[in-house]
Design a protein around this nucleic acid. Structure first.
Lengths: 210, 210
DNA sequence: TAGATTGTTAATCGATTAACAATC
DNA sequence: TAGATTGTTAATCGATTAACAATC
C-alpha cells in the first residue's frame, strides 16, 4: 500500500500527531471522518492532510472520507509500532529515571531492555521495574542483546565518547537528551535530539517579544 | 539595534541553538568567528546564519566576522535571558520532578517559584529545593505572585481544565508536557508543546524505514 | 443518480541558498 | 590599499494551499 517516493521530513514529523489524534477519536468511538473535519480538529488544512496521507497510499474513499480504525492501523504500520525495537537507556539521573518511567515505550514501537549508569552507587537500584547496570557491563550486554536504539540522558561532557562507543557496539539510532548535537558527527546514524533547554528558550523569547 | 520586521518561526527556533554554540565557543576562549567558520561547526550554511542574524540587526563587521562575546550578549538580550520570568510547575510526578531538577531555569530567562500537585501525599515534599504545594493553593498563590509561565507535567485528562484555570489566573504562556495539544484552544496565549512521545515515534519511524 | 470527498496537479507562499556590492 | 567578510538583494528550492477531475 505504500508508495516509493521519498517522504519529506515535515511529513514524518506530523505522523505521530496524526496517530495520536486518530487514537483519541477512536477511543471516543468515532468511526469515520473527512479530511475537512479532521483538519478542523487538528488545526491544519484539509489539503495538507490529504497530501500527507497520500505520500504513503490512498487510505481514503471518495465521497466518504477516511475509516479511522483502518487509517490508524495503517499509520501504526508505517511508524513500525509492532516492531518493538530493542532500546537501552544510558544515564539513570533525574531525567533518565523520569524518561524510563514516564514514556510508554511499547506503544511507541520500542522495548526498553536495560538501563546503565556510570555511578557505582546507582548499580542495582530499581528504575521502571528494571535494575540499573553499571556502564562497565555495556559492551557485554550489547554483544549479547544487540540493542538498536540508545537513549542518552547523560551530561554533555562524555556524550561524544559514549556515543562513539555505542556506534562501535552496533547502535543504529540515538534519542539524545544530552546538551550536545550528535548529528554533526555521524552521517549514517539516526539521531533525534531533544533539547529541552532550547524548547524553553523559544518560549522565553516569545514571552519577552509579545 | 533590533529591526522592526516580523521574525519567522524558523528563525526563532534556531536562536537557542546559536546561543548554545556561542556559549560553548566562548568557554573555549574563541573570540571571533566568520559566518563560514560558524556554519561548518553548526552544520548550516553561512548564508543562513547571516540572514538569521540580520533579522535582528547587523551584529557583524565586514572583513572581520562576528565578535562572539558581543553576539552572545545580543542574542541573550533578544531571548530575554535577564528578564527572569516568574514560572510555576504543575504536577510533581516523575516527569515534573525531573524537569524541576534538571532544567537550569535561570540560564533560560525563567525563575521557577513554585511547584503544585493535586496529590495530598506529595504536599510538603521537597523538589529542587522547593516544597510542593497542594493545588488548592494555586489561586491564592497566583493572585499574590502573578506568575507568567506555567509548566504542565500533568496527565492528559484534566490538562484542559487546569489550563483554563491558569489562563483565568493570568498565566500568559505554557510549557506543556501533557499529551494534549493546547494551542488548539487559546489564540492569545503562548504555548510550547513538548511531545516526547511524538519525538520518540519519529525516531521509531526512521529506524524502521532506513 | 446526485452529492460528497478523495487523490492529484497546478499555483502560491515561505524559507533557504547564491551572488555580489558595500565596507571594514 | 588589498583582502576578507558582511549585509542584502535576487534566484532557487521546498512545502503548503487551492482547485478540480476522478470516483465512491
Amino acid at each position: 500500500m505504500s508508495k516509493n517516493t521519498t517522504v519529506s521530513n515535515s511529513v514524518i514529523r506530523r505522523l505521530p500527531r496524526y496517530y495520536r489524534f486518530l487514537g483519541d477519536l477512536l477511543s471516543q468511538n468515532v468511526a469515520k471522518m473527512s479530511s475537512r473535519e479532521l483538519s478542523e480538529k487538528m488545526g491544519l488544512t484539509a489539503s495538507q492532510i490529504r497530501q500527507d496521507l497520500n505520500c504513503f497510499g490512498g487510505f481514503g474513499q471518495q465521497g466518504y472520507g477516511y475509516n479511522l480504525a483502518e487509517l490508524y492501523k495503517e499509520i501504526g504500520n508505517l511508524l513500525g509500532i509492532d516492531n518493538q525495537v530493542k532500546t537501552i537507556l544510558i544515564g539513570a539521573g533525574n531525567l533518565g529515571r523520569a524518561i524510563a518511567s514516564h514514556i510508554d515505550f511499547n506503544k511507541r514501537g520500542c522495548n526498553l531492555i536495560a538501563i546503565f549508569d556510570s555511578d557505582e552507587s546507582l548499580k542495582g537500584t530499581e528504575v521502571a521495574g528494571m535494575s540499573v547496570h553499571h556502564i562497565s557491563k555495556l559492551h557485554e550486554f550489547c554483544k549479547e542483546n544487540e540493542p538498536v536504539i540508545a537513549i542518552l540522558c547523560i551530561p554533555k561532557t562524555g556524550a561524544q565518547a559514549v556515543a562513539d562507543d555505542l556506534v562501535s557496539m552496533g547502535i543504529k539510532a540515538f534519542w539524545n537528551y544530552s546538551h550536545y548535537d550528535l548529528q554533526v558527527n555521524y552521517k549514517d546514524i539516526i539521531v533525534e535530539n531533544v533539547h529541552l533547554g532550547d524548547s524553553l528558550l523559544t518560549l522565553t523569547y516569545r514571552v519577552n517579544n509579545q
